[in-house]
Design a protein around this nucleic acid. Structure first.
Lengths: 340, 340
DNA sequence: GTGAAAGCGCTAACAA
DNA sequence: TTGTTAGCGCTTTCAC
C-alpha cells in the first residue's frame, strides 16, 4: 500500500505538495500536479482516510440514522443519499435505531461520537428530547428527513397539503362520501405525520362543506394489513358505505384495494382509493397516489449538508434553508367518478 | 471533546494505561481500570476512531456492498448485519454498486481502498473477474452472501434443494402438472441463482418420473410484474393448464396469485402456488414459501468476519467455514391438493 | 508555488 | 502492572 511519501518520492516533490495536488487545497502548478497525479496512478495510491481525518478533522463520511432499513421509504432515502454522497467522494455509515435499550443508547453515547462522521442525516426518527440534545451536542451539521425533529432543520413534504390534494381529487370527481384510513391517534400525538395527513383530509372535506362522521375515520398504521382491516370495516357496512377512501399511505391503500376485491367490489367502479408515497408497488396495483420522492429527499439532504460542510460564496444563498419538498398527484386506475 | 490525555490526567495515569484499560488490550489492575473508567465517564470521553485506526491499523468498521438497498432481501441482510456489527462495537459503511460506469469503478478504485474498513461483505453481487481481483487485493476478510462470487467464501442456501422442496411439497399434495416461473436463461448463465432453482425444480419432477414440457417453464425476474405476466400465460391456456406453479421468488409468486385472481381463479382451489424467501408480504398473501432468513445471513456473515478479525483459540473451530444455511418450508394457504 | 516541520490522538513496543 | 517513547500517514501553518 503506497503512502504519500512514496508518491512524493516518485514525483520528485514533497509530501505536502502531493497532498495539495491531490486534494485541491492550496495552489500547485499544473505541471507539478500532472507529475503527482501520474505518480499516484502508477502506484495505485489512495489516501488513508484515518490519517487524513486525524490530520484534518474531516472524515468525508456522513452518518445516516434510520428506524428501519427494510421498509421501502427508508431504503429509498438511503439509496438516494448514498448515491449523492458517493458522487462527492463521501462514504455513508448506517445506523439503525430500534426500540429503546442499550443498543439505542449506544448510538448516541458511542457510535456517533467517535469522530467518524462529519454530519448526520436523521430519517423519520421519533427522538426523545435527550436524544435530540445529543445530536446537537455533536456540533455537526444535521438534517432531518420526514420526521418531527424539534429544533432540527427538517426536509418534509407538506403533509396536510398532500392529503388535501388526494381528497380534492376525489371531490372533483364527484365523490361526497369519502372516508379516511390512516394515522391512529392513540399515541400522545407522537408522529405528527399521521395527524397532519388526517387534518389535510378534514380541511378539504370541510372546505367542500361536507361533514365527515367519526365512523369514516379508521386508523391504519402504514401497513397493508391494517389498511385491509380498515377497508373491510368501511366497505362492509350495510348502509352509508363510502364511495372513496383516502389512505394515509400506499401500503394502506393497497390493503384497501385488496379488501375491496375480496368483498367482490371493483376498484374504481365500486370504490375509489388514493394512496400517498408512490411506493414501488403502487404502479402495479394501478394506484392513484401522491408521489413524494424519497431518493431525491435523500439527495437533497446531502446537498444541504454539503453546503454546510463546504461553504462556498457561490452556493451561500443558492440553497435556501427550508425548501418545500415537491410532491405530485399521480392519477392511475384506482380512482374514477362515483357510480351514478 | 476530551482526549485521551485529559482522561489520563484526571485518572492520574499515563495515556497508554488509559488505552489499555478502555480497550481491554494488555493488563491493567482492577483499581486502575476503575479510576480510568470513572474519569472517562465524567469527561464523556469517546476514543477518536481516526486516531485509533491510524495507530492500530484497525477501523472497527465493515463495508457492505450491495446491488440495491431498496429491495426487501438486500435491506433485510443489511439490517441483520448492522445489528450484529453494532453489538460488537462495529460500524457499517454501505456501498451500492449499480450499473457499470465511473461510480461503480470508483467503489473498487477508491472507496474500498481508503483503509476505512476492516472487512467486506458482498451481497448477491455479480462481479467481473477484475472486480473480484480488486476485492482480493484488499487483503481483507471477505465474505459473500447469496451470490456467485468465484473464489470467495460465500454464504448461500442450497438453491436446488430449496426448489426441490417446493416442488416435492406440491407433488406430495398430488399435483402432477406443475409449472415453473422464474429465472430467465437469456443472460450468459449470469446469476446461477436463477438456474439453480430451476434445476432443483427439474430434478424433483424428474425424480417423480414426470416430464415437464418446455412451455411449462416461464421466465420471470424477481418482480411481481414479471410473475404476473408469466402466470397469465400459464393459466390462460385453454388446454394443459398447470394445477400448480413453483415460483422462483416470493415476488414472482405474488404476481402469480394476483394473475390467478384476475383470471377469476381461486388460490389454492384452482391453482396452488409456492414462493421462495418468506418476503415481508408473503404472510399477507397467505403464500406457502420456503423461508430463508436474510437477517440471519447478514448476522452470520458478520460472525465469520469476526472470527477472522479476532482469531481466538476458543472459536477457532467453533464456526466451520461453510455452513449450509438454514431454510424452511412455510406452509400457508396458497397450496392444497388439486381439485379432483 | 513549494518544502520543512509540527502535530492530529491514539497504540504498541520496549523498559522499568 | 505501568510509563516512556516512537510512530501511524496525513494536513497545515509558516517560511522561503
Amino acid at each position: 500500500m503506497a503512502s504519500i511519501t512514496d508518491v512524493a518520492a516518485l514525483a520528485g516533490v514533497s509530501a505536502a505538495t502531493v497532498s495539495r495536488a491531490l486534494s485541491g487545497n492550496g495552489h500547485v502548478s499544473a505541471a507539478t500536479r500532472g507529475k503527482v497525479v501520474e505518480a499516484a496512478e502508477t502506484l495505485g495510491y489512495v489516501a488513508s482516510s484515518s490519517a487524513s481525518s486525524l490530520a484534518s478533522g474531516r472524515t468525508r463520511n456522513v452518518g445516516v440514522v434510520v428506524p428501519f432499513v427494510d421498509r421501502w421509504y427508508f431504503s429509498a432515502v438511503i439509496e438516494g443519499a448514498q448515491r449523492a454522497l458517493m458522487e462527492r467522494g463521501y462514504d455513508l455509515t448506517l445506523y439503525t435505531l430500534r426500540e429503546d435499550g442499550a443498543a439505542r443508547a449506544s448510538v448516541f453515547e458511542q457510535f456517533l461520537l467517535r469522530k467518524r462522521v462529519d454530519a448526520v442525516i436523521a430519517v423519520s426518527l421519533e427522538l426523545t428530547e435527550a436524544e435530540v440534545q445529543r445530536l446537537h451536542a455533536l456540533h455537526k451539521p444535521l438534517v432531518g428527513i420526514g420526521g418531527p425533529l424539534t429544533g432540527v432543520r427538517t426536509l418534509t413534504i407538506d403533509n396536510p397539503a398532500v392529503a388535501r390534494l388526494c381528497t380534492e381529487h376525489l371531490l372533483a370527481l364527484g365523490h361526497t362520501r369519502i372516508a379516511f384510513a390512516g394515522g391512529s391517534l392513540d399515541e400522545d400525538g407522537a408522529f405528527d405525520l399521521n395527524l397532519s395527513r388526517r387534518q389535510g383530509f378534514a380541511q378539504a372535506m370541510h372546505g367542500a362543506g361536507i361533514d365527515v362522521p367519526d365512523e369514516d375515520y379508521r386508523s391504519a398504521e402504514y401497513s397493508i394489513d391494517t389498511g385491509y382491516v380498515a377497508a373491510k370495516q368501511l366497505l362492509g357496512r350495510p348502509h352509508g358505505r363510502p364511495t372513496a377512501i383516502v389512505a394515509g399511505s400506499d401500503e394502506v391503500a393497497i390493503g384497501c384495494i385488496l379488501a375491496a376485491k375480496d368483498l367482490g367490489m371493483s376498484v374504481p367502479r365500486d370504490v375509489s382509493i388514493t394512496g400517498i408515497d408512490d411506493h414501488e408497488l403502487a404502479a402495479f396495483f394501478d394506484l392513484t397516489t401522491v408521489a413524494q420522492f424519497p431518493q431525491r429527499q435523500g439527495a437533497l439532504a446531502v446537498e444541504l449538508l454539503m453546503d454546510d460542510l463546504h461553504p462556498d460564496a457561490a452556493d451561500a444563498d443558492a440553497a435556501p434553508r427550508s425548501t418545500a419538498l415537491p410532491f405530485e398527484l399521480v392519477v392511475r386506475g384506482s380512482t374514477a367518478r362515483p357510480a351514478p
